[in-house]
Amino acid sequence: MLNIALAKGRLGEEIYSMFEEAGYGVSGMREKTRKLIFSDEQRGLSYFWVKPSDVAIYVERGAADIGVAGKDILLESGADVFEILDMRKGLCRMSVAGPVGYSSKPGETIRVATKFVNIASEFYASKYQDADIIRLNGSIELAPLLGLSDVIVDIVETGNTLKANNLCELERITDISAWLIANKASYRFHAAEIRKLANDLERIVSGKEV
């Protein structure tokens, strides 16, 4: 049995459609019920919906053999999992944003508001720049507007929210998308199944028929 963790919500449903299209659908997944696990014993598949930020934890600790998680979550949590396939969904980028025209002065400690403290810390460490990282849980764009921070590190999709608040993207840290991930121990016992599933999904990702 292959246990698969998918993220609740619109992106998770789009991902499940790709699994379905690749021939890995199970009945009941789309029904609005309180059921948490959807299994097909005969085909050896079992799906469960979890909070997007929890997918990597379920997979890393082996409760799920595979799952699909955002690269932002993987980078931030440092989850020790195999990153098998870029699903090319949920495309966006992790960027530094701030007031239009902002640039830090040499030697200055930059104040950075973010939900992604590990990504931000690593980014500024790689540039040998001192940064005061301020952890926030939401409305990150407010921080530079109220003087709480100089810049923010956050996910940027269209840039419209930034624009509406007189902010702009200053520097791109990395591209973000949803990734098929696998538990390192499960991979050893289900290598053939996981590799076949990844190949079938890859054909869907690249627009070919399975």
């Binding site: 082996g62 409760a63 020790d80 538990n183 121990a185 050893r188």
Partner: peptide, 9 residues
Amino acid sequence: GFVGNSGEA
């Protein structure tokens, strides 16, 4: 080395 259900090496 991995054993069944260990979840990690």
